[in-house]
Every structure is written in structure tokens, then in C-alpha cells.
């Protein structure tokens, strides 16, 4: 009995170990967001998001930005400057990769701090690009801003798999056609002319007309 328990235990350990080694294929654990509020002055960290890729494919994170930053952001929007965002992705093994993305600053204000961050993952689930977008794409009513709550939605996008030549369906289709043809043959064994006279007759007439109207054939 004990030996059985031991075996089960060992099995469990092996399985879990295997599972972990498979899933911890350097999965993403944290995302740090830094933005630039004064052009050329450098990035300020304002949010960090904890991610678990196994459970969810999107994360919503909210953060409050302070009044001085809000003022700077408004100034950026009024000057029609670009809002640059530096996104650092940290994986479970501690590897950090940073990406840069941008949008117009007025769009951030215009969408009332609702932005969407898309993290693009390659076929091994490691990120290679980050894109920033806003929920509304208008630069109007920059003045009636009632909130200072920054809502970031993070989406993860994986590449699609490539199309493959659909030979199976095509062969099936050909097979069906062949069967239908054979069936058709056994049903009526009239001669070809008898069966398809309605197609052949117009063709013959058409060719006669074409032949008559073509001067070269007459020569």
C-alpha cells in the first residue's frame, strides 16, 4: 500500500514537474507601464500589471494618476504631441523585454483614459510587439474630463496558423462528381446526342452563325 502511495506520489511529482516545465516556457508574469509626459524628458512608471496567461487572455487594470501628471498629460494633448508608452514585459524566469508604442496624446484624453494594450505573442508565446490604442478615436472635448482613473485593458494575440492546401475536400468533391457521373450513366443509357441535344443544338447554331459572319472562313 505504502509502495503504491509512493508510486502515485512519484508519478504526481513527475507529472507536475513535466507540466511546469512545459507551461513555464517562460510565461509572462508582469507588465510594467511607463509613459512620457514631457517630450524628451524620459519615462515615468505609472502602472504594473500581473498577468497569468494560463487563465485569462485579457486583463483589465485600473490605476489613479496624480494631478500633476494629469496636468502634464493635458498639456501634451493641447500641443498635439505624441504620447509614448514604454512597456516592459517580465517573464517568470526574470527576463525583461521592453517595447515602445505611441498614440496621439489627445486620444488618451478624448477616450477618458480608456486605453487598450495589445500584446503580440509569437508561436512560442513570448511577446514580440506591443500596440497601444484607445477606445475612442476623437480628439474633441478635451476639456470635460471628469476622471483621473486610468483603465488599461491588455489583450494577448497569438498568430494564426497558416492555410494548407485543401486536397482532401477537393478529392472528395471529385469523388462525388465521379460517383454522380457513374450513377447518371446507369440511369439513362441514351446516346450522348439524345441526352445533351439541348446544349449541343444552340452551340451548333451559334457556330453556324459565327462561321457565316466570319469572312475568312468563306474565302
Amino acid at each position: 500500500m505504502t509502495s503504491f502511495k509512493l508510486l502515485v506520489c512519484l508519478f504526481c511529482i513527475v507529472i507536475s514537474d513535466f507540466c511546469i516545465s512545459d507551461s513555464s516556457y517562460d510565461s509572462i508574469s508582469n507588465i510594467y507601464l511607463e509613459h512620457e509626459l514631457i517630450p524628451g524628458a524620459g519615462f515615468i512608471k505609472y502602472n504594473s500589471i500581473v498577468v497569468n496567461l494560463e487563465t485569462r487572455n485579457d486583463v483589465i487594470s485600473e490605476t489613479i494618476i496624480n494631478d500633476s501628471d494629469l496636468k502634464l498629460l493635458k498639456e501634451l494633448a493641447f500641443n498635439n504631441e505624441l504620447y509614448r508608452l514604454k512597456v516592459t514585459v517580465k517573464t517568470l524566469s526574470g527576463k525583461e523585454t521592453s517595447f515602445l508604442t505611441f498614440t496621439k496624446a489627445c486620444l488618451i484624453i478624448g477616450s477618458k483614459f480608456n486605453d487598450i494594450l495589445t500584446l503580440h505573442l509569437d508561436h512560442l508565446d513570448s511577446p514580440f510587439a506591443v500596440n497601444l490604442a484607445t477606445t475612442f478615436s476623437n480628439c474633441n472635448n478635451l476639456h470635460d474630463l471628469s476622471t483621473n482613473k486610468f483603465t488599461t485593458t491588455v489583450f494577448f494575440r497569438r498568430p494564426e496558423s497558416s492555410p494548407v492546401p485543401d486536397t482532401a475536400t477537393y478529392i472528395q468533391k471529385m469523388e462525388r462528381e465521379r460517383e454522380a457521373r457513374e450513377k447518371g450513366k446507369s440511369n439513362n443509357n441514351k446516346s450522348m446526342l439524345g441526352k445533351y441535344w439541348m446544349y449541343i443544338l444552340p452551340l451548333v447554331i451559334f457556330m453556324m452563325i459565327a462561321g457565316a459572319s466570319n469572312p475568312e472562313t468563306r474565302q
Binding site: 498614440t103 500596440n131 498568430p159 494564426e160 497558416s162
Partner: peptide
Amino acid sequence: LTLHLLDAVSGIIIYSVVHK
């Protein structure tokens, strides 16, 4: 082999597809 469609102005990845 991965094909990425990228908007060269905004840096947005429009589409990606993997050919194994």
C-alpha cells in the same frame, strides 16, 4: 516561418500567421 503585417507608421501588428 512567420508572416507579420506591420503598419510601419504606428508600429501596429495588423496580422500574424505562422507557417510550420
